[in-house]
Amino acid sequence: MSIFSTLSQKPWMADQAAIDNNHIGQAVSMPLPRVALYVLMAVIGVLFSLFSVAYIGRMAYGDWRTLPEPTLLWLNTAIIMLSSISFHQATKNAKENQIKRSREYLLLSGVLTFGFIVGQLFVWRELVSFGYFASTNPSYAFFYLLTALHILHLAGGLIAWTVVTIKSFIPQKETSDFALKVNLCAVYWHFLLIVWALLFTMLLLT
């Protein structure tokens, strides 16, 4: 049922009450952490969208200069893509209860993510060495700001990754939600990959 049919219910009517009495009290049939992650991603999505709107708004002014994107960004993009693929494999193995293989992919994902973050910091160093400081031009400032924010969100994800990776070393019960947790990490990584891809495209186009 859609939100519209929900909102058109008449809860005071006897026939509606008969239906409502059997309602289990959940809006969607989904584990709580998954719902939480989706809501969180929506909020993060809004945050990056608003930064992008500010970026486009600020571009309209005369002092805007195009940022020369260092080639290293392409390599970093490839690394974060591989990290996402690796997470996908980790989920697949966790679902098949192959914890050991899942752990290997988890570790690989973590290493690649660290690699991406270090790579981004190298890009910063390269820009600074060219004299492109945040105060030089708003386009550079936006670059530092957006990449820093993206790194912070990845760093937050790495906390969850650490917990899940440690969990992978502990023998799992059959009812364990290990696969779910790996999957949620993977979803978050895919999401941040998409965010990065959109940011990178915006940077390239402007």
Partner: peptide
């Protein structure tokens, strides 16, 4: 609110 309501507690209730 979305996921932890008790049995019978629809959104419109």
């Amino acid at each position: 609110i979305l996921q932890a309501r008790t049995r019978g507690m629809t959104l419109m209730r």
